[in-house]
Computed example of a mutant assay.
Amino acid sequence: MATRTAPVDYLLQLADDALVLGQRNAEWCGHGPILEEDLALANHSLDHLGLARLLYQHAATCIEADAGEQARFAHLQGARHGGVVTEDTLAYFRDAREFRNHTLAELPHHGPLAGPARTDRDFATTVVRNFLFSALTVPLWTALQDSADAQLAGIAAKSLKEARYHQRHAGDWLVRLGDGTDESHARTQAALNHLMPFCQEFWVPSEAEQQAVASGTGVALSSLREAWNATVDAALAQATLQRPADGGFVPTGKRGVHSEHMGFLLAEMQSLARAHPDAVW
């Protein structure tokens, strides 16, 4: 029986989520509220980066094996020496419209800031975002272990343990902050109110997701909604936080239409590689 592979854009969607969220968590390096959390978030960032590398490598192999995909990504083949698409070209030489990550992953570490705000990092926002995201990735990687794409199934099995740790870590902090002081509770509730609407994008399938589901290589995120809701509601109850009502604009990051924050994130992340495109790392 012929080996099936997931659609390239589906692999990129998974990889982009990992890379962009890893980049955001890395921004806490040297700025954590305590040393232990500074190191923990840096390690989480490395976990996400390692996952992104595996997925980009798989996507690059699929591109090289398909003439149509080679033509679609031809603009990247001259970005670095060798003239082939690699994990580096996929990460560092695509523009914002080519990224397929959920908008939630790219948001900065704060909600709307007041004019006199003295910092652009809010630990509660990071905790809430990491929890909401990991509550999705745990059932996602669990389900993807049965993917018809054997390579993706292996990546899922490897990533599941890390995703479970990320969920436990963020969940512990969610309860500590939500059920803590009046200030920590208020800031965590505000972060939840700000971020929860972006989770609606989880349940609106992209074309790549639909293709992956049809081929047996991917998972419909809508099938994970009940499990996600149960995990989130249980944690919020323990943290004495009120879940805001669903509603508002549904983001479109996984269709390539991103928030205004994405360009700034990529400019910082990609600047070195673009300044020295022929360098060997």
Score class of each variant (00 low, 15 high):
residue 102 H to G: 04
residue 235 A to N: 05
residue 147 S to E: 10
residue 254 K to P: 03
residue 110 H to Y: 07
residue 63 I to V: 09
residue 215 S to W: 00
residue 50 G to Q: 15
residue 222 S to T: 14
residue 73 F to N: 08
residue 99 F to K: 00
residue 29 C to T: 15
residue 229 N to G: 05
residue 132 L to I: 07
residue 83 G to F: 10
residue 188 T to N: 13
residue 66 D to R: 00
residue 77 Q to I: 12
residue 16 D to T: 07
residue 59 A to K: 02
residue 162 E to H: 02
residue 154 G to Y: 03
residue 227 A to S: 15
residue 99 F to P: 00
residue 154 G to F: 04
residue 102 H to C: 07
residue 159 S to N: 04
residue 81 H to F: 12
residue 269 M to D: 02
residue 26 A to D: 12
residue 113 L to D: 11
residue 133 F to I: 11
residue 76 L to C: 13
residue 48 H to G: 14
residue 15 A to L: 01
residue 38 D to G: 09
residue 98 E to G: 00
residue 51 L to K: 15
residue 222 S to M: 13
residue 19 L to N: 09
residue 271 S to L: 06
residue 176 R to D: 11
residue 167 Q to G: 02
residue 200 Q to R: 07
residue 131 F to V: 02
residue 147 S to H: 11
residue 173 W to A: 05
residue 246 D to W: 10
residue 210 Q to V: 08
residue 16 D to N: 15
residue 50 G to C: 14
residue 104 L to C: 08
residue 2 A to I: 09
residue 59 A to N: 00
residue 255 R to D: 07
residue 82 G to K: 09
residue 170 A to E: 05
residue 106 E to M: 02
residue 130 N to L: 01
residue 118 R to F: 00
residue 88 D to C: 02
residue 210 Q to W: 04
residue 170 A to V: 01
residue 112 P to H: 15
residue 99 F to C: 01
residue 212 A to S: 14
residue 171 G to V: 01
residue 204 V to F: 03
residue 105 A to R: 15
residue 218 G to N: 14
residue 28 W to C: 10
residue 252 T to K: 15
residue 70 Q to G: 01
residue 169 H to C: 02
residue 71 A to V: 01
residue 216 G to T: 13
residue 95 D to W: 02
residue 162 E to I: 03
residue 266 L to K: 04
residue 83 G to K: 09
residue 45 S to Y: 10
residue 3 T to V: 08
residue 51 L to G: 13
residue 274 R to L: 02
residue 151 Q to I: 13
residue 9 D to N: 12
residue 221 L to I: 08
residue 17 D to F: 08
residue 82 G to C: 10
residue 153 A to S: 10
residue 48 H to W: 08
residue 215 S to G: 11
residue 263 G to Y: 00
residue 75 H to I: 07
residue 135 A to F: 06
residue 159 S to C: 09
residue 135 A to M: 04
residue 71 A to E: 14
residue 7 P to I: 02
residue 233 D to H: 15
residue 99 F to Y: 12
residue 105 A to C: 14
residue 60 A to E: 02
residue 148 A to N: 08
residue 32 G to W: 08
residue 3 T to Y: 08
residue 194 H to L: 04
residue 217 T to R: 05
residue 144 L to C: 06
residue 72 R to F: 08
residue 173 W to T: 00
residue 65 A to T: 01
residue 4 R to N: 03
residue 167 Q to E: 13
residue 170 A to F: 02
residue 47 D to A: 07
residue 82 G to E: 12
residue 145 Q to D: 07
residue 203 W to F: 09
residue 195 L to P: 03
residue 75 H to S: 15
residue 254 K to I: 11
residue 63 I to C: 03
residue 215 S to R: 14
residue 190 A to Y: 08
residue 47 D to R: 13
residue 72 R to L: 14
residue 157 A to Q: 05
residue 253 G to R: 11
residue 148 A to P: 04
residue 89 T to A: 06
residue 122 D to Q: 09
residue 249 F to C: 04
residue 178 G to I: 03
residue 156 A to W: 11
residue 110 H to A: 11
residue 95 D to K: 08
residue 50 G to R: 15
residue 24 R to W: 06
residue 192 L to R: 12
